[in-house]
Design a binder for these strands. Structure first.
Lengths: 76, 76
DNA sequence: CTATATTTGTGCGTATGTATG
DNA sequence: ACATACATACGCACAAATATA
């Protein structure tokens, strides 16, 4: 899944994988993506890396984060 | 009790102490272990650390957590 | 039924230390 | 020196589930 020694940073790899799941509809609009803790376990990355991946998705306009609730897939 | 500068992480020290109490029967089956807030005070750690210790115990199959209720010692 | 308190779940921000490229 | 990444740990805020007054 994740290639730690690849040319692209791990956080972007994680972001790309989640983005792909959103495109496929595996993560439907208005539904939450996995929590930071879940992402850590799912991809085997540190918290900082997971958070950075989510931030990437926010910057791309794919998701929106709500404090205390989670990060949700935006409708498109 | 807890050695913050020891080789073993604080969260595992806390988990081990609770596990020992379970083994001794001081924390009986089907009864709740102390809440996260209580663990913070008892061991002088942050909530994140207390939560991580509880998570360790879950991963070891010693306890089960119910949202809004607490974490209970599993029968064995 | 409403309100409050307790407890867990999630997220934000930051800090320290280590290791690698 | 710098960026990336891991691991640990602190503190705080808001949300959700549960129980109780």
């Amino acid at each position: 899944m994740i290639d730690p020694d690849g040319m692209t940073p791990v956080y972007r790899q994680v972001a790309d994988l989640i983005a792909a799941q959103i495109e496929r509809g595996q993560l439907p609009p208005n539904r939450p993506i996995p929590s930071e803790t879940a992402l850590m376990q799912d991809f085997g990355v540190a918290r900082g890396t997971a958070r950075r991946a989510v931030r990437e998705l926010r910057d791309r306009g794919l998701v929106a984060t709500v404090h205390g609730r989670g990060t949700y897939v935006l409708p498109r």
